[in-house]
Structures are given as C-alpha cells and as structure tokens.
Simulated scan of single mutants.
Amino acid sequence: MSALLIALLLSACGSRPTTGALAINTEPAAGAQDHDVLIVTTRERDPTPNTYFNGERSETINYAEATVSVPPAHKAGAIEWPREVPGDPKTDFVARSAGYIENDQVFLKQLNQRLSQFPKGERDVFLFIHGYNTLFVEGLYRMTQFVHDAKAPVVPVLFTWASRGQLQGYVYDLNSVAIARDSLEQTLRLLARSNADSISILAHSMGNYLLLETVRQLPAEDRRRFSNRVGAVVLAAPDIDIDLFKNSLRKIGRPEKPFVIVVSRDDGALRVSRALAGGVERVGAYSDDEELAELGAIVIDVTDLDPAETSSHGKFAALAEYSPGLRRALLQSGLTDVSSVSGSKTLGDDLGSFVGNTTQAAVTLPIKIIAAPFSLAGGGS
C-alpha cells in the first residue's frame, strides 16, 4: 500500500498548471484546431490574471467560456502542455480566448446560438464532469482533448466543481462534490431547457459520484423527463462505493437506456480509494461484471489501451480516439437497441472480433466489451 501511494505521488509530481495558465495566444498556426467550450462551475473566481477560477468553493454558480487550440501534431489521448505560458499553438494546447458569462440566461442564450449552427436533429450537447485532484485548466484541457480526439460534432459544456487539485485533498474534494449536487441539478435543468436534441454525459472518477447523487435527488418525474433527452451516459473509472451504487440504482430504477461503465483492471488510483474506503470495492474496479450488466450497464474494459499519459486512472482519455469506431460498432451490433433486452450476456472477445462475428464489420479496437444488459440483436442469449 505504501509503495502504491509513493508511486501515485511521484506520478503527480512535476509542473502543474496553476495560476496564469490561461494566458491568451492568438498567433496563427497552420493545422491547429480551435474548440469552443462553455463552462459551469462551483469554483470561486480567481482575480489572478489569466486564471479565472481556483479550487475554493463559490457560494453561487459561475459561468464562463473559453476557446482552446489543439496543435497539429497532437497525439491522441495526450495534452500537449506548454512549458511556459502562453505556449506555442504549433506544438501546445493554448487558450485563444476566455471570459466570464454574466448569468444562466446569458449562458443559455449562448448555448442555443451554438446549437443553431448544427442541423435540426443533430444538435447535441456533450457534458463532461471531471474527477478528483483536477485543477480548473486541467478539466478544461481534458475536455478539449476528448472532443478533439472523438471528432464529435457537439457543443461541449464543462461542469467543473471545486477540486483543489491536490493528491492529499481527497476528503476536501469529496465534500466539494456533495456541495455541488444542487448546482449540477440546476445545470441539468438548464440544459434540458435548451434547444438541444440530445444530451450526452461523460463523468470521470469522483465526478461519477456527483452525477449519481444528483440524479438520485431529482424527483422521479423530472428524472424520466430528463432521461428522454439523454443520448448516452458514460461512467469512466467510477470512484463510487459499490454498495452505494447499487443502493442508488434501486432507488432510481433500471435505466431505459443502458449506460456505459469504463473499467481498467490496472487502475492504481481506485485501489488506493478502495483502501481508504475500508476495502469496499469501487464501481470502476468491481469484479462482478455480470452484476453491473444486470443493473443496466454495458461494461467496457480498456486495460489494453496504451494511455498517452502516465495514469491508468485516466485511460478514458485515450478511449476518445476510438469512440467513432466504438459507437459505430455498438450501433451495428445492436447493443444500443434496448428493445432486444433479454438478460445479460458476457462477451469474452475483443470488440473487433465481437463485431466481426455479428455484423462482419471491419473494426479492430483494443477494447473489450465484458458484459451488456441484453443479448445480441438477432443472436441467442
């Protein structure tokens, strides 16, 4: 246990972007691609130039926007951090613009304006909720990386809660998540009022606890109404007590649409979290995949993914590169067709073999579908 903690501490060492990390760089760079992100946060505003938000808790919800550029030689799954701000757009992630948004109504107006740039029926919001030990700019750049690598035609919305970005701040972050529940609920209601045709949600690590607790506190009728707008829910490396997870799903009920749980068997951070929690398994490292399937989950194992960065806990970021093929494979195989629900099914083959066996699709991905809450479309149980 002590060796594992030391390893995690060492992996977290080095220069991390703190104050002034969002210094603006407008220098042209051929091949660099800009991404506009809307931001909702329970973080406190920071008066330090080019910082915007810190890790302290705000008494009110704050709104902002930023444009982040991804360099032309970007490696999928990675964030090319500048050695010094404002960075070089030819080689680094850089901020092109950033600013506060006055209130929720102005935020909603801007959201609808961005949605209107897509054809009707294809107006999708992508909400990202980051995990523990995450600085503001880290959450912003991670979302940008994911949207860029996934080539997703969406309007990105980052919900960033008050993490101090400190490895030793686990309890502070956990309490910040609890404080953020009402704000995330207000955000979900705001997104539901928008002109979005679909809302997809990706939560990582402790951000899953925030999402689960927020959904749990919604009145049943509001949950049903919001679920009709939701296109996909992905729980990446969920840092949630498995008993709490099962208890919450018993209250919420089996979802009409299956959600996706992304697991990695070599996730050292979740092993530490389990030890801190008295040995209770975390959802993101739970050993009974069949039980997760029975609760309504498609379980995807990304252990074999080679992360562009050092942490096994962050392998979901590398998944973005494969998301177009993964989505195509799930659609082609019938895994997203809940009309075919007939119990859980374990799938031992890698996704490429699995899809090839069912639809002859030429897809080869380093991902395994471990379990699903229904049998294959057109196949036996």
Rank of each mutant, 00 (worst) to 15 (best):
A320F: 01
P373I: 12
D34N: 10
R216G: 00
A64D: 09
G278Y: 08
I179T: 11
H130S: 15
Y322H: 15
P28S: 03
Y286L: 05
T358H: 12
A196L: 07
N54M: 04
A29T: 08
A371P: 09
G296A: 03
A236L: 00
D92S: 04
Y209L: 13
I101M: 08
A12G: 14
I6F: 12
F146P: 00
A317C: 09
N54P: 03
A7Q: 10
F374M: 14
E185S: 11
F226W: 07
D350A: 08
K90D: 09
H313D: 06
K90S: 10
D337T: 10
Y322E: 05
G131H: 00
A150V: 02
L8I: 11
G20K: 02
I6N: 12
G348W: 10
A318P: 04
E65G: 00
R224I: 10
G278E: 08
L184I: 04
L330R: 11
D88V: 10
V157G: 00
V233W: 07
P238N: 06
A73N: 10
W161K: 02
V70Q: 01
F354I: 10
A95R: 07
Q168W: 15
F245W: 15
H148L: 00
R45D: 03
E27S: 14
F53L: 11
D239C: 05
D124Y: 06
F316L: 05
R164W: 07
L10Y: 09
G334R: 02
T144P: 07
L319Y: 02
L335A: 10
L270F: 06
G139V: 00
I39S: 00
D301K: 06
R254D: 09
L211I: 04
V215I: 15
L135I: 08
S311C: 05
I24Q: 05
F93G: 00
G87I: 03
E213L: 13
V302F: 00
Q332N: 13
V70S: 02
L174H: 14
T336S: 05
P49Q: 03
F118L: 04
L115A: 01
A371Q: 06
S381V: 14
V263R: 14
L335E: 11
P86H: 02
V280G: 07
I101W: 03
V283L: 01
L365C: 06
N175D: 10
H130G: 13
F259R: 15
D267Y: 02
R57M: 13
E84F: 14
L188Q: 04
S342E: 15
A150S: 13
A178Q: 12
P373V: 10
I179V: 12
Y100F: 11
S353L: 14
V263T: 14
A64P: 00
V302Q: 02
S339G: 07
H148M: 01
G380Q: 15
V272D: 01
L211F: 06
V338H: 15
A236W: 06
H130P: 15
A64K: 10
R229F: 02
